[in-house]
Design a protein around this nucleic acid. Structure first.
Length: 576
RNA sequence: GGCCCCAUCGUCUAGCCUGGUCCAGGACGCGACCCUUUCAAGGUCGAGACACGGGUUCGAAUCCCGUUGGGGUCACCA
């Protein structure tokens, strides 16, 4: 049996990193066994779903290199930076004729099955208002019980059907058979759910849309899904789904299949809290409070447009509130802080490589159990490796915490190992989207910048940071006081005097290329009987304001001869 | 609270199914040293875990039970 897996996100925001892992595992399993991977959009919550989210999710998956076989069509534009097998072209489509893949477009299908169930009295209309059910739930909670909706023996079926046909507002509930459900989970093993914990859950909401539980079961059957990989938060939904699968039969009498279930361990923040997009608001809010005080801060101070003071105050006051993503991004920029990465888009913006993100998240809950030739555990691998070796039996059971430091280490390693031309090309593509100042550099200069930043950066974002000195105006350099003290004012020939001498040497260099600059300086230092540190450090401080920069030749080349001379002069004047 | 799941270094994990080769291996992080024109990288070394208690057994990280701890879930959200 060739497996068919599916990833079924609800389009209520960007793709969460946890969702990305689920998608990755689904993809990998399908690839491993030559099956198909379906992408389905679960947009049955009319209030929260949006088409923009759907587009974002498709884009995030494509960027990660997780291509779906069946699902909404997505055009990959140009030089894709994705990690997976598809470079360009189209992803998705409906080769098997099982679409559409947006649940909001499948209402007639669900309704047909609802009718089928009602006919057999396996489901029934119920007319309770939300308030009535809520009241019962509350009453049960006060008795320290869990409310379970069960159809009363006195239920008037004929009358109810008539009311339904007359158009009265109602929901359709499943008539739970009251038998225990046994599930064999591919990860967790045998699990039994006793009957007394299940109830007559809703299949179709009052707005006519199916609930998640119902749509999932119908779609998985109709799309011939064989393996359901999903987060462990769904474990308690499984008995509902199985009960439904047991109740439903096709017209020819064949029952719905019970797919293989594999519940994945969850991913949390290092502090054990849920990884939520609210974390980003939380971080920004904490920074605002720390900087401006708890209550009185004005959005004016942030220099953020499009954020009314009233909205700002409300956001500060309510720990659970969220700012629109774009506004929040501007707040963070104004604050000059990095927001925690939660969604795939965040990692992309921070300059992580998609193949590294996939590698790292695959390790959260799965590992290949193989060794490298040197005896260490194999944990660096690419998408092709996953497609070849991924399997359910090595999925762990324990939840994990997202370790950004390890991700960053992986990313730095991949960045450093990359061929310089590839690094430059990908860095440039990233800058085109997120760092226009650098993208504007002409080719030769960018190549030097890329070379200077490559071995040192954990992310593209950080690479930009390492080049910041070349981006600033010559008269904007701030000379770090400690550096000035240590490098320019102390020592036998103190740095300042070296600077004065070296300026003339620099001035004499005609061919302003990194190798020439560095060679000339080395020769000069040697001739003067000085260690290179005596020359390099004062120059670093003069050029960048700090003692830390890329290789000296690259640093000077990036600033340009004119700029270097100006900065040195300014430094001597200011410090001396 | 009911139900369900889980439990190896700070973190991710290997080992557990098929008890002995485990005074528990690796990775990230951390510490020290070396190298060095800074930072990083690299090299060498180091600290660091079988939650606890009972069994079973000649022998348990590995099997069983309990305790404790953690997580999930209890919607006309998915």
């Amino acid at each position: 049996m060739t497996p068919i897996t599916r990833f079924a996100p609800s389009p209520t925001g960007h793709l969460h990193i946890g969702g990305a892992r689920t998608a990755l595992f689904c993809w990998a399993y399908a690839r491993r066994y030559g099956g198909r991977f379906v992408l389905r959009i679960e947009d049955t919550d009319q209030a929260r779903s949006s088409e923009a989210s759907t587009r974002g999710i498709l884009e995030d998956l494509a960027w990660l290199g997780i291509a779906w076989d069946d699902g909404p069509e997505y055009r990959v534009r140009g030089q894709g930076q994705g990690a997976g097998e598809e470079g360009a072209g189209a992803i998705g489509g409906d080769a098997r004729g099982v679409g559409p893949f947006e649940q909001s477009r499948r209402l007639d299908i669900y309704n047909r099955w609802i009718d089928w169930l009602i006919e057999r009295d396996l489901a029934y209309p119920a007319f309770d208002t939300t308030e009535e059910v809520e009241a019962k739930r509350k009453a049960a909670a006060e008795r320290k019980e869990t409310f379970r909706y069960i159809r009363e023996a006195s239920y008037d079926r004929a009358g109810s059907l008539a009311r339904m046909r007359a158009g009265e507002m109602h929901v359709v509930r499943f008539r739970h058979p009251g038998t225990p459900v046994h599930v064999t989970d591919a990860v967790l093993g045998a699990i039994t759910f006793e009957a007394e914990h299940t109830d007559d859950f809703v299949l179709r909401k009052a707005d006519g849309f199916p609930t998640y539980h119902f749509a999932v079961v119908i779609d998985d059957e109709l799309m011939a899904v064989t393996h359901i990989l999903r987060g462990q938060e769904h474990l308690n939904n499984t008995p509902r789904h199985v009960a439904l699968q047991l109740a439903l039969k096709h017209d020819d009498g064949t029952p719905f299949r019970i797919p293989v279930y594999a519940h994945l361990p969850l991913i949390f923040n290092p502090d054990g809290s849920k990884m939520s997009k609210r974390d980003k608001d939380k971080a920004a809010r904490a920074e605002c409070k720390a900087r401006f005080g708890a209550a009185s801060a004005s959005s004016e101070r942030l220099g953020v447009t499009g954020l009314a003071d009233e909205a700002y105050q409300a956001w500060i006051a309510d720990a659970r509130s969220q700012l629109p993503a774009d506004v929040l991004a501007r707040v963070a920029a104004g604050l000059k802080i990095e927001l925690p990465e939660i969604e795939v888009e965040d990692f992309r913006r921070s300059g992580y490589l998609p193949e590294v993100v996939c590698n790292y998240i695959a390790l959260l809950g799965w590992n290949p159990g193989m060794k490298n030739p040197d005896g260490t555990d194999l944990e660096r691998f690419d998408m092709a490796f996953l497609a070849e070796h991924f399997d359910l039996d090595r999925i762990g059971k324990t939840n994990s915490k997202f370790d950004r430091a390890k991700l960053a280490a992986f990313n730095q390693d991949s960045l450093a190992k990359m061929a310089p031309e590839e690094f430059a090309a990908r860095f440039r593509a990233w800058c085109g989207q997120y760092e226009p100042r650098l993208a504007a550099w002409e080719h030769a200069r960018f190549a030097i910048g890329a070379r200077a930043a490559q071995p040192r950066a954990q992310t593209f974002r950080e690479a930009v940071g390492r080049l910041e000195f070349a981006l600033m105006a010559d008269d904007a350099v701030v000379f770090d006081a400690a550096a000035v003290e240590k490098v320019l004012k102390k020592g036998e020939p103190n740095g300042l005097s070296v600077l004065g001498e070296v300026a003339t040497v620099l001035e004499g260099i005609g061919d302003w290329r990194p190798e020439v600059i560095e060679g000339t300086l080395k020769a000069w230092a040697e001739a003067k009987g000085l260690g290179m540190g005596k020359v390099a450090q004062p120059l670093r401080v003069a050029i960048t304001g700090s003692t830390v920069s890329p290789g000296l030749g690259d640093t000077l080349a990036l600033v340009g001869k004119q700029g270097v001379l100006e900065r040195v002069l300014r430094c001597v004047e200011q410090v001396g």
